[in-house]
Write a protein that binds this DNA or RNA. Structure first.
Lengths: 260, 260
DNA sequence: ATGCAACCTTGATTTAAATCAAGTCTGGCG
DNA sequence: CGCCAGACTTGATTTAAATCAAGGTTGCAT
C-alpha cells in the first residue's frame, strides 16, 4: 500500500468509504458530535431523523476531490470532521482557494446547473452528502432549516467580503497574520475541549494551499511565517499546529497597524 | 447651490427624498419597471402589495452613504435604479470595494447586529428600504420570496468567489478586462431596450472606485484602459459608457490566455 | 466666457513580492 | 536504519505594479 491519498490506510483502495447503512443510521444525526455547531442545530428530533434519512455519510482521505468545477451540481455537503478546501482555477492552472470548510461548515450550494468551484479534502474528512432533490425537500419541510441556511450563506458572504479586503488591499505580512488568526478561530470553533486550546491554530494545509488562499507564493508565505517565528509572535507545535504567542500583536498586524 | 453630492439638483438640501406615501403607494411594486429582474419577481399580486407596504422608496444623489460599516444593521435594500458600491476598509483608510449593486440587486443582509460593510451611491440611485422586522415577516409569510433570497445570496457568494480569483491571481490587464466585461453584462441586465445595447458597458464609477474594486492603483487602471483603447479593443462613448470592440479578445485576456 | 476643482492620463523611479535557484527537513518505506 | 520524495526554507535577482511627479481634461459655477 502506498502513501498516495487515494489509497491511504484511512480507506481501502478504490476511494471513499460509505459508512454502513445500518438500522441505527436514523440515529446518526442525533448523536453527531458537532451537531450543535452546524446547520443541523436548527432541527428537532424528528428533523434530525429526516436529515439522517436524507443524507449519506462519507469518509474521505486527504487529497480527495469532492466537487469538480464545471460538473453537474448534484449534491450539497456538511463537513463533520476535518478540513476541505474550495477553489477556482484559471485555464493555465493558476488557482485561488476561496475558503476552507472545517467541521460544522457546509459546501456545495449552487443555483446553476454546474458547480462554479472545486472542492478537495485537506486531511481526513468526514462529511454528510445531501442530493439536491433531498435538500430541497428538507428546505420546504423544515422552515427553520431553510432560515438557518440563509443565515449561514449570508455569513459566508460576509467572510468572502473580508477575504476580498485581504486579497486586494493587505500586504503579505498582514495576509499571513490574518490567516493565522482565522485558523486559531477555526480551531476554537471546531474543538470540543474548550479548556487549554489556548491560542492554538490548526494548520493542516500545505504552504501551496496557504499561498493559493492568500494570493501569494509559497516562498513569501514561508519567509513571513519564519519572520513571525523569529519575532516570537508564534511558535510551531506538533501535528500541524501553531501556537500563537501574541494574539494582540498579530491582530494589530492583520488590521494594518504598523508594529515594526 | 454647490455641486456637493448631498445638495445636487437631484434632491433638496438636507438629504434623501422620501417619495410621497400616497394612496397609490400600494401600487408601487406592481408597476415597478425592474420588478421581473429582482427578488420581487417571486411575488404574486397580493405579495407585491405587501412588499410595497413593507418598504419605503428612497431617491439618493451620488456619493450618499446608505450603510455605514459598524452601524446597527436595521435595514435591507433593493436597488431599483442606478449603481451602489459596497466596500470594506482598513483603519488606515485602505479600501476594498467588494461589489457594485446595479438595478435589480439587493444589499444590506446581515446576521450580525451591525453591518460588516459600507454602501454608498455611485450615481443617482432609487432604492426600496425594508426594515428588518418587516423583512423577516415577509420571509415567513412568503416562502417563495425566502427561497428566491436564498438563491440570490448563493449567486452573490459565487460572484464573490470569482472576484477572489481575480484579486488573488489575475494580472492588472486580466483584472481590467474582466471588469469591463462584467460592466457590459451589468448593462445588458439593467437596460430594457435589449436591441442595440450592442457591446456597451456602463461605467458610472470613478477610476478610484475601479482601482479599489480591482485591487490596483488609479494609475494602473488608467494605463491599462489606455492600452486597450490603443489596441482598439474598446472605445469611449458618451455618458460614462465604453464600447467593447472585441468581446472575444477581452474574454481571452480576462481568462489568462495570452493575446500580445 | 473664464476659472477652478475634481478627475484622468502619462512618464520616471522605486519597491514588495515573484521568480529563479539551491539547499534542508521530515516521515514513511523497503 | 537510512533512502527518498514531498514539503519547506533561505538567498539572489527580476519584475509587475506602486509610488512619485507633472500635466491635461472636463464640466460646473460664477
Amino acid at each position: 500500500m502506498t502513501s498516495s491519498p487515494q489509497t491511504s490506510a484511512f480507506v481501502p483502495a478504490g476511494g471513499a468509504v460509505h459508512a454502513p447503512k445500518a438500522d441505527m443510521d436514523v440515529m446518526r444525526c442525533l448523536v453527531c458530535d458537532i451537531r450543535n455547531k452546524s446547520l443541523c442545530n436548527s432541527m428537532d428530533e424528528e428533523g434530525l431523523a429526516a436529515l439522517a434519512h436524507s443524507s449519506r455519510q462519507l469518509l474521505l482521505p486527504p487529497g480527495t476531490t469532492i466537487v469538480e468545477e464545471g460538473e453537474p451540481a448534484l449534491a450539497f455537503f456538511s463537513v463533520t470532521h476535518g478540513t476541505v478546501k474550495l477553489f477556482k482555477s484559471l485555464p493555465d492552472g493558476r488557482r485561488q482557494i476561496t475558503g476552507f470548510a472545517d467541521a460544522g461548515q457546509f459546501l456545495g450550494l449552487s443555483t446553476a446547473q454546474t458547480y462554479s468551484f472545486g472542492a478537495e479534502t485537506v486531511d481526513n474528512v468526514r462529511l454528510c452528502r445531501f442530493l439536491r432533490p433531498q435538500l430541497e425537500t428538507l428546505l420546504s419541510d423544515y422552515p427553520t432549516f431553510e432560515r438557518r441556511l440563509l443565515a449561514a450563506v449570508t455569513d459566508k458572504l460576509a467572510e468572502a467580503q473580508e477575504q476580498m479586503l485581504l486579497l486586494g488591499r493587505k500586504t503579505a505580512r498582514e495576509k499571513v497574520a490574518s490567516f493565522l488568526l482565522d485558523r486559531m478561530k477555526a480551531f476554537h470553533q471546531t474543538t470540543n475541549r474548550r479548556q487549554e486550546t489556548g491560542n492554538m491554530a490548526s494548520v493542516p494545509m500545505t504552504r501551496v494551499d496557504i499561498a493559493d488562499y492568500l494570493g501569494l507564493t509559497i516562498e513569501t508565505v514561508s519567509r513571513t511565517i519564519s519572520a513571525f517565528r523569529r519575532s516570537l509572535l508564534i511558535a510551531s507545535a506538533e501535528n500541524h499546529r501553531i501556537h500563537i504567542l501574541s494574539v494582540a500583536t498579530l491582530l494589530n498586524i492583520a488590521s494594518g497597524q504598523k508594529t515594526d
